[in-house]
Design a protein around this nucleic acid. Sequence first.
DNA 1: CTATACTCTACTATTATACTAGACTTTTAA
DNA 2: TTAAAAGTCTAGTATAATAGTAGAGTATAG
Lengths: 146, 146
Amino acid sequence: MRISTKGRYALRMLVDLAEHKNDGFIALKDIAKRQNISKKYLEQIVPVFNKSHMLQTNRGFQGGYRLAVEPNKCTVGEVIRLTEGSLSPLACIDDENEVHCDRSADCATLYVWQGLKKVVTDYLDSVTLQDILDKKHESYANDYVI
Amino acid sequence: MRISTKGRYALRMLVDLAEHKNDGFIALKDIAKRQNISKKYLEQIVPVFNKSHMLQTNRGFQGGYRLAVEPNKCTVGEVIRLTEGSLSPLACIDDENEVHCDRSADCATLYVWQGLKKVVTDYLDSVTLQDILDKKHESYANDYVI
DNA sequence: CTATACTCTACTATTATACTAGACTTTTAA
DNA sequence: TTAAAAGTCTAGTATAATAGTAGAGTATAG
């Protein structure tokens, strides 16, 4: 039941872009440095967001990426679905292939996993990049108070 | 974010034992046949439940396993924790090693994963073997009505 | 004492994960 | 116009996890 490094790095990359959304195009190099993630690995993660039109991109000198959506419109659920393929805890309840286990009609435990998928999906779709930024700044504020 | 085959098989095995809890000791052979799971693989899964005192066991002729707890006291959360090691979506928030990522103080996304762990844990700890049996028989009843 | 069934350790094939490498394309500023 | 910066694309690779199988050993009822 682990979220892959790919998914977690993707989220950190998008939060970084959300935080710098008014700074023009952000080079992967800079995100990689700030987030302490291999730039080469990020290169491999970014295409999926590029193709889903979640990012704007500029090639060449002073190129980079920019969020194409508002941070409060982009949920963690979308991010993880794009990197992980699905939020389903089992292949047999993936979104595409409705049912592809021949035991499903008779499977006593299926409803448990359907329920799990629902709570995970509901939760992850309820958290946006903006929420993460807000929380981050809120905890900085707390640091000052302390 | 997948539940492993090991965890799913374990749950099916325990549901099977719950269903036959008044039939004395149940041989792995029979569970394997009913659930269509390799007996050899079940042999590898069962020790963790044996050692956690969730099962009673009898060796030798007419031996087998029997639930040592009431089906309404045994949650899916316990089963998956025992097979999967943790319900945490990240190693850095596993139960044992409180924090073992040096970014954690500064990690904007950490609270997202803590929240995910909570919804998953709350859900899986809310479903018992008895719930699964009840649901199963309820849907059989529905089949008759239709 | 033998058949049955649990126990334990080791092995193996396949897949996923987490990267790295390098060639190529695009853009811009000097 | 060209060099440097930065994205794009394909391929390779080491490690670990997954999902098993194999076989020898132990306990017990009859």
